[in-house]
Design a protein around this nucleic acid. Structure first.
Lengths: 168, 168
DNA sequence: CACAATACGTCAGCCTTGTTGACACTCCAA
DNA sequence: TTGGAGTGTCAACAAGGCTGACGTATTGTG
């Protein structure tokens, strides 16, 4: 890892000025609001919130995942997740199947209705993402992903990487 | 704006596949958690939350801004902001000065204590940002910013742009 | 001047989503 | 058989969003 020794702090490191970093921080803040706004709008018309979206997303992403697994990915408490999961199961969007090898585990799957909502939400989010990607171009997208991955915590990056290349 | 006509959908548009978009969405989710984790940790030791951080950040950013102005930037209700602002003022981190031209307006400023907390928080956030920027390099950073800006809502982009080039 | 509009503060009540603590149940493995 | 892991659930609480309503300066306008 290079240090900012005086000899290096010329044109090459201009992108590391406090001003540039602050712009990046604000860009991150405003962009994240855009990022969540479309699903939020859809969810507001239904009985659900962002927490439901996250659960649905990762169950779709890794069908058959266990509750503990989901807990680790989402980084919330069991009780918090349980409330969300409870409503999704009661409403018939998520199915909880007792594990075959280990009957203590519950394997989570989306029902057809759950899959439908997942599609509606992710379509909206992907549309915005696609527009942004298209506007910025492939080189920018590669940079975007690089910076985001460098910004994650170690353990988050591990979970992200684990999900990243799965064939779904 | 290019369409995805069959003739174009070769190698050139591979970065627009659903799989790529989904990775981008997850990267955004995990990265945002990293992005907020350092300030959150600091705030947890004090009496404050993320909402206080946002207020402090933008007051620092635009000293003398009015309440209505801050309301527009943060996109929350008056009541919600007031609760946060109240505690910051009571604790002596923010000063609210009656407007000179228009005495209905309150101009918000950080006190020395408020500025100290702002520095503590933004130092932590900038450190992570700097590390990510340094790891990814200037080209990636440019792409990162491009994609984020393309992902904002129109009105958010306007506010972001308005802030972007101010001399602070 | 009278009155509407603006900027702000505040009370009351509601929701979502996070937290901790405690407890029970099932089941696996040593 | 017994400890511990995986799970579900109850209760209580807090932060931080929201709406609706109302009060009070102050300002601009007819």
């Amino acid at each position: 890892m290079a240090d900012t020794t005086p000899s290096q702090s010329g044109q090459a490191l201009l992108f590391l000025t406090d001003e540039q970093l602050r712009k990046g921080i604000e860009a991150m803040y405003f962009a994240y609001r855009g990022f969540t706004s479309d699903p939020d709008r859809i969810l507001a018309t239904k009985e659900y919130g962002r927490a439901h979206h996250r659960a649905i997303h990762f169950i779709h992403r890794s069908p058959g995942t266990t509750v503990t697994n989901l807990l680790a990915i989402l980084g919330v408490t069991k009780q918090s997740l349980n409330r969300v999961l409870r409503s999704l199961i009661d409403d018939g969007l998520v199915e909880s199947r007792v594990g075959r090898q280990d009957k203590r585990e519950r394997h989570l799957h989306l029902t057809p209705q759950g899959a439908a909502l997942e599609r509606e939400l992710s379509d909206a989010q992907r549309d915005r993402m696609r527009a942004a990607y298209r506007a910025a171009g492939p080189v920018a997208v590669a940079g975007f992903r690089q910076v985001l991955e460098a910004m994650m915590d170690e353990d988050m990056r591990r979970q992200y990487e684990a999900l990243k290349d799965r064939t779904v």
